[in-house]
């Protein structure tokens, strides 16, 4: 059953087309990674899903209800953390958490205290004194201490330190284990790789790639570093080999996942002394889409 189902979402701001036919499908119990650079339309999509913006065209449903007209009913079961958390400067963090939890309904005192402790937040401070990271903690504590079925998280870790990022990832995993669904928009690709079952990539208001990480990996390339007993002159001619750099009998290159077999069988006749391979990374895929189709991936060998 799909928790979020968006079809052909288009949003115009005046003449500017922020979204251009975005499709998005998140199933129950799934962690969906939503990636794309700044200004690609991630936050706009999320705002349409929240019913804060009205889609110019297309249909967005959450829990099978219309995201715009049934927003209030939907919001009883979702928790949202914005990328840029703006809080009331003269309220304390604790007050804001309580306000959010209370407005959503159903408070969990114990969970709140536990999360405040885990995120190491001082709830007695006024929000004006919080750094970006601390404001994000306020929003995260408020989100995870409520009983939601769907978490919509818009770049929630951009201000957190690595320790807090780990706490956040634990929270996401716990929520997933409880069968909750999560839409996670992020810039931190390693985080998406670690947490997400499915990934969607948005660019200039269009979804250009989406699927499970496994599916997407087929579209990407493996980085190889080899040293052979004999020089291997024919390597450059094999289709699917990219960015070849030769240094004597050593070669570093990327290969399309489906051509890996051809390359290995070719190399084996030259006596392989050393073979290092790095798995295809989300970053490579991401960069490939964003740097244009012609240039190769820029992943590091490992």
């Amino acid at each position: 059953m799909s928790v979020i189902s968006a079809k052909g979402l288009t949003k115009n701001f005046g003449k500017f087309k922020a979204l251009n036919g975005v499709n998005l499908e998140v199933d129950k119990g799934e962690v969906y990674g939503f990636i794309g650079p700044n200004g690609a339309g991630k936050s706009t999509t999320i705002r349409v899903l929240l019913g804060v913006l009205k889609a110019t065209e297309g249909k967005a449903e959450i829990f099978g209800m219309d995201a715009w007209s049934e927003a209030v009913e939907i919001h009883k079961r979702i928790a949202y953390v914005p990328g840029d958390v703006n809080l009331w400067p003269n309220l304390t963090g604790g007050e804001v958490i309580d306000l959010f939890v209370k407005l959503r309904g159903g408070s969990q005192r114990r969970k709140r205290e536990e999360l405040i402790d885990r995120f190491k937040l001082d709830p007695s401070k006024k929000c004006r004194t919080y750094s970006k990271g601390n404001r994000q903690k306020v929003a995260l504590v408020a989100a995870f201490s409520s009983e939601a079925d769907l978490y919509i998280l818009d770049e929630p870790t951009s201000g957190l330190d690595p320790l807090m990022e780990r706490v956040f990832q634990e929270c996401v995993k716990e929520a997933k284990n409880e069968g909750k669904s999560i839409l996670l928009s992020s810039h931190i690709l390693s985080e998406v790789e670690r947490l997400c079952d499915k990934v969607g990539i948005i660019r200039e208001g269009k979804m250009i790639e989406s699927g499970t990480l496994e599916e997407l990996r087929h579209l990407t390339r493996t980085q190889l570093h080899v040293e052979t007993r004999e020089p291997s002159p024919g390597l450059v001619k094999i289709p699917g080999v990219h960015n070849l750099q030769k240094n004597g009998r050593a070669a570093t290159f990327q290969v399309d996942s489906e051509k890996l077999e051809d390359v290995i069988s070719y190399l084996s006749s030259y006596g392989v002394l050393k073979l290092e391979s790095a798995p295809p990374k989300l970053e490579d895929l991401f960069m490939r889409h964003y740097k244009g189709e012609n240039s190769g991936p820029v992943g590091e060998g490992g």
């Binding site: 929240l50 804060v52 209030v72 919001h75 979702i78 959010f100």
Partner: peptide, 13 residues
């Protein structure tokens, strides 16, 4: 000041 979005993500009409 961008403070309504958080509230409207809650069940507040």
């Amino acid at each position: 000041n961008q403070r309504l979005e958080s509230l409207f993500s809650l069940p507040v009409s």
